[in-house]
Simulated scan of single mutants.
Amino acid sequence: MGHVYTKRINKLKEEVRVMLKQAVNPLDQLQLIDTLQRLGLAYHFEDEIKRILMSIYTHNSYDNTRMREDLYATALEFRLLRQHGYKIPQEIFNSFRDEERNFKMYLCEDREAMLSLYEASFLSEEGESILQYARDFTTTSLKKYVEQSKDQNLSMLISHALELPFHWRMLRLETRWFIDVYERKQDMNPLLLELAKLDFNSVQATPGRSKIHVKVVEEYRFRRKIGLCQR
C-alpha cells in the first residue's frame, strides 16, 4: 500500500478515536466496540476499548436483583465484558426469566435480542446452567425464525451465527464476510466501512504482514478468552 493509503488509514483511525471518545451512552459504546471487532479493526483501538469497558464495568452493579429491561443490551454487555476477562455473573439474565426459571416467551419476538443472547451464551463457563438454557432457548427460536422470515439480511446473520458463533470463528475470515454484510446495512457508518476495507487490503497486500497480523490478533483473542487481559 502506498503512502497515500497509509495516510488515509491513519486519518480514519484518528476519526474513529474521536467517535469512541464522543460516545457516552453505554449501549452506543458497546455497539461501536462490537462493530469494530467484527470489522477486524479492534486491534487498532485496544487502549480506548479497555478504558470504555473498564468504565462500564466499574459503574455498573451486578447485583442479582438488578432489574434489566433490554435483553439485547444486557447480552451484548455481558459478551463483550466476558470476552475481555471480566467476571460477569450469569445471573444478570434473571430478570428475563419467569417464576419457573424459564426465559420469558415474549423475548422471542425480538430477534436481535435473541441473537445477542445466543452469542453471549457461548461465553459460558462450566456449570453455568442459565447460559446453557439460554443457548438452547435461543437456538430453537432463531431456527424457527430463519425458516419463516422474509428478512434476508437478518436471516443471513442468524444463519451464519447458528453455523458457528462469532466467538469461535477465525477473525480474518470473519472480517471479510462481515465487511460485505456491513456494507448492505441501512445504518452502516461509511467511515468505519472505508477503514475496514483499507485495513483489510493493507494487511493482504503486504508480504508477510497477513500472517503476522493473524498471529497477533488471534493471540490477543486467546488472551481475552482465558482472562489474561488487563482489568
Rank of each mutant, 00 (worst) to 15 (best):
F137G: 07
Y72D: 01
D28Y: 04
L228I: 12
E48Y: 15
R223P: 04
L32N: 11
Y72Q: 02
L41Q: 09
T140I: 11
V203I: 06
M156T: 11
S129G: 12
D110E: 03
L154K: 03
Q37K: 05
D187E: 06
I56E: 14
L81W: 08
K225L: 08
Q29M: 13
I212S: 06
S149D: 14
S124R: 10
H160K: 05
V214I: 11
R8E: 10
Q230H: 13
R97F: 02
R184H: 11
S116A: 07
Y62L: 13
F45W: 09
D187Q: 05
R209W: 03
E69H: 02
E183L: 01
P89D: 12
I33K: 04
D98A: 01
V214N: 06
E126P: 09
T35D: 10
A120K: 03
Y62S: 11
R38S: 10
L39F: 11
R82S: 03
M1T: 07
L115P: 02
M67E: 07
D47V: 12
L198G: 04
G2S: 15
M54Y: 14
S129N: 13
F222D: 12
A73L: 02
S149G: 13
T206Q: 01
M67V: 06
G227T: 15
L195N: 07
I33Q: 02
Q22H: 09
R51W: 15
E14V: 04
D34R: 14
G127C: 14
R231H: 15
T140H: 12
G40I: 10
K150F: 12
F137Y: 11
R135V: 05
V16P: 00
R51S: 15
E112R: 01
G2C: 14
E194R: 05
L30M: 11
A161P: 09
E125G: 08
S202L: 00
S155I: 08
Y220H: 09
Q152M: 07
L171M: 02
R38M: 10
